[in-house]
Design a binder for these strands. Sequence first.
RNA 1: GGGCGCUUAGCUCAGGGGGAGAGCACUUCCUUGACGCGGAAGGGGUCAGAGGUUCAAAUCCUCUAGCGCCCACCA
Length: 882
Amino acid sequence: MSSSYDPNAVEGPIFESWVAGNYFGSEIVDGVRPYSVVIPPPNVTGSLHMGHALNNTIQDVVIRRIRMTGRPARWVVGTDHAGIATQNKVEQKLTAEGLSRYDLGREKFVEACWEWKAEYGSTIINQLKAMGCSCDYDDIWFTMDPSYQKAVRRVFVDWFDAGLIYRGKRIINWCPRCTTALSDIEVEHEDVDSHLWHLRYPLKEPVAGIDHVIVATTRPETMLGDTCVAVHPEDERYKDLIGATVVLPLIGREIPIVADDYVDPSFGTGAVKVTPAHDPNDFEIGERHDCAKINVMNADATISGEGGAYAGLDRYEARKRIIADLEAAGLLVGIDDHVHSVGHCYRCHTVIEPWLSDQWFVDMKPLAAPAIDAVRDGRVTFHPKRWENVYFHWMENIRDWCISRQLWWGHRIPVFYCDACGNMEAALDDITTCSKCGSSSIRQDEDVLDTWFSSQLWPFATFGWPEPDPRVDYFYPTAMLSTARDILFLWVARMIMSGMYFNEGQIPFDDVIIHPTVFNAEGKRMSKSLGTGVDPLDLMDHYGADGMRFGLMLQVTGAQDLKFSEEKLVSSRNFANKIWNASRFVLMNLEGYEPGEPVANTVADRWILSRLADLSARVSEGLDTYEFGEVARLLYDFFWSEFCDWYIELSKARLNCGDAASRLAVQRNLVFVLDRALRLLHPIMPFVTEEIWRNLPLPESERAASLMIAAWPDPAELAGFVDEGAERSVSRLIEVVSGIRGVRARYQLPPKQQLEVVFKTAGDAEREWVESEFAAMARLAGVGSFEAGVGVDKPAHSATVIASGLEVYVPLEGLVDFDAEAARLAKERDRLSGDLGKLEKKLSNEGFLAKAASEIIEKDRARAAELAEALALVEAQLADLS
RNA sequence: GGGCGCUUAGCUCAGGGGGAGAGCACUUCCUUGACGCGGAAGGGGUCAGAGGUUCAAAUCCUCUAGCGCCCACCA
C-alpha cells in the first residue's frame, strides 16, 4: 500500500467490481418490502452540477446504508427529455449552422433531438458512476421511452375522459423567444425599476363638463388593444362617466367606460385601461362587460396587424414610439417611477408576455385535495418539516395547470380533431378515422405536453406502468425522494397528486428530503452560465469522489442554503487519507494475527469499544433522521480524534511488547474497530472503505464479497460494549497526558527526553488507579517513569499539572521560569475561580435547588467540588512559587 | 402584502434550556517506524441588538436591524 491514498487509481476498478458483482439490485424478493428510490431525472442535456452532486450523494448514502441492512434496495436512474431546455439546445446548434427548426420541419427536427439525446444522453449517467452512485444501471429510463410514452398517453386520456383536462382560450404566460406557453410556476418574477405612464384618453362627447379620463399603465404598448376603460362603481369622480365613450388615442377606436369592482380607486387615477387580450385581470373585466379581446401581438412579441401603424415593431420599440406619439399629441400626462414585478421565462429569461391563446389545462383542485390530506396526516413526511407549510400554501391555492407547449420536442398531445364533424377525442393509439362520423379528415393536436406532465409520472412509469408489471406492485410506493426546493411545486407536488390518482390513492413516497440549495462563497446561486459554478468532476479530480461526497455531507444541515466550502473538501480528502493510513498501520501490524472476537483486556480496549457502540447508535439514528452533517461529523471525530489519536497510539506499545497474547488482543480490537468503522463510513465514502475492507482479515462469518453488501453494524449488538466507567477513566487519562504534554511544549523539552513524574493523589484508591492505568498511557506523554503517592512532596524545580483532580509534578532540570509558571497558574486560578463563583452562586440559589432536576444539581455539585479542589491545588502551587 | 431561512472564533459553519465547538487560517514545537493530505501544544468569541419567559437563555417567546429566499392577478 502506498503511503497516501490515490483515489484516481482506486475508484475505477472498484466501481467496475461493483458492476461485475451485480450489487445494484433490481430483483424482486418475495415477501420482503424493498427500499426503492427514484432519482430526480436530470435533464438529458445536462451534466453534473453541484446540486446533483449533493442530491445524489444524499440518495446514495441512504440507499447504500439500507442495502447493508440486507433489505432489497433499488435506486432507479434515468434522464428527462426536458422539452424546452433540449429544444433550445438543438435550436442553438442549428442556428450555428445557419438553420432554424422551420428549415428542417417538425419530423426532421425531432430526429435531430433524438440524435442529440443519443450523443449527450449518457453524459450524466457516466458522471453518476464516477461519483459512485449505486443506481440500477441495468434499467435506465428516459421520459420518452416507448413504455413511458404509453404512460403519458394513458394519463392524458384518463384525465381527459374524467373531465380533468380541458381546452380553453385563456391569458397564459407566453415566452416570445421560446414561442410557447408556460405554466404559472415556470415564470420567474423579478422586481424591475420601471415607470407608470399616465395617459389622457379623450371622451367622444364631454360629460358633465369632463372631456377626458386619465389612465395609468406600466405597459403603454398594450393600449393598442384597449377595449374599455374601467372605474370603480362607487368612485364619485367618475360616476357620471360610466357608460360614456372614449376615443382610444392613436387608434381611434371608440370604447366604453365601464364600472367594475376590481378597480382600486386609490391606485393611480382610479381609472384603468383594459386590454383583455394581454392581461389576466383585464381579461376578467372584459368577460364581465362583454368587451372585445383584441390581440395586438404576434407570437414573437412584435405588434400584430391590429396595431395599426405600429404593426411589425418589436414590443419595446412600439412602446417607445407610442409614448413619443402620445407626448406629441399632448396626451402623455406624466411619468412616475414605479417598481413592479416582471415575469421572465425560467429557461431563457426573456420577459414573459401575458397572451391570449388556446391552450390545454388540468383542473387541479380535485387532484390536490387528497394530496393535501396525505401530507396533513403524515403519510408523506417532509424533511425538514417546515417545507410542509410551503406545500400546503401552494396546494390550497392551486390554480389550473397549463400543460400545452408550442414546441416540437416532447409528448405530442393525444387529441384528434375531425375536420368533417368537429369531433375532438383523446386516444391511447393514434386514430385515422373519426369515431363519430367516420371521416378520415383527422388531424392530431400540434402541441406537446409540458415536460413536467411526464416527469410527474416518474415514480410509477419507471416500473412499467400502465402495463401490468410486477415491478409496480413491488417497488411502488418508493421510500424516499430527495430533491431541491425549487422543484417542490413543479415536480414533487404533482408526483403526489398523479401518483395517488393512478395508484388507488397510494402515495408515491414516504419521505421527501428537501436538501439545501448550493450557493457559492459569495452567496450567489451556483450556475454555469453565471460563471459562479464549480464542476464536481474537477472536485473529484482534486479530492476524490469520497472527498467530495464527505465534504458535501459535512455541509448538509437543516438550513435552506448551503454556502459551498471547498475547505471542507480539503479536510475530507485528508480524512480519506487518514483512513487509508490508519488502515495501513493496522494491516502492517498483523503478523501473528488470528481472526477472532475483540478482546477487552484493558481500559483502553473497553473505552474504544464503548465509543464504537455509541458511534454506531448515533450514526444509525442520524441516517434515519437524514442528519447527514451530524453523521459525517460523528464519523470524522470518532475515527480521527478517538481511534487514531488515542487507540492506535496506545496500541503501538502493546503490538511491540513481546507478549503474544496481548499483541493478538490488540490486533483483534484494531481489526474489529476498523472493520465496523469502515462499514459505518462506507455509505458516505464508498471507494476508500471498499478498497481497504477487502484486505481486512476478518473472521469467516464477518466476510462478504463486497463492503457494499456487508452487514451494517447493528447498534443493538454493539450496545453490550457500552462501558461508562471505561469512558470516564480514559477521559481522565487523556486529560493528564495532555497536561503533561502541555508542560513539554511550554518548556520546549527535547522530544526524546523521558520524564519522571510524580502524582499526588487524593487517596489510596486514586493512587492505585494511577498505578494500574497510567502505565499504558505514559509513553504518549513521554513519561519514562512515574510514582504516585498520597502525601508525596513536590520535587524541586518542577512544573505542576492539575488535571482531573490529580496533581502531577513534572521535574525539570534547571527549571524554572518561575514568573512564566506563576503567570500561567494565575491565569488558571482566575479561570477556575470565575467558573467556581458562577457555579456556587447557582448552587446557592434556592429556586435552582427547588426546581432543577436532581441529576443537574448533583452534576453541578460534583463539578463545584472538582473546581474547588483544582482551585486549591493551583493556589497552593502559586503560594509555593512566591 | 404574506411567509421562510440566516446572523456563534479572522474565514466557512455545527450546536439548540444547565460546563462556548469543528474545519481552515494563525503562533510555538516535532524529519517520533501509519499518515507533513501528519503529530503535539496554544492564542482567539458580551453566540446581531433590545425586551420577556425561566431557578437557569447562545438555545424558547416578542420586537428591531442587516442579509438571502419563496409565494401573491403590486393597472
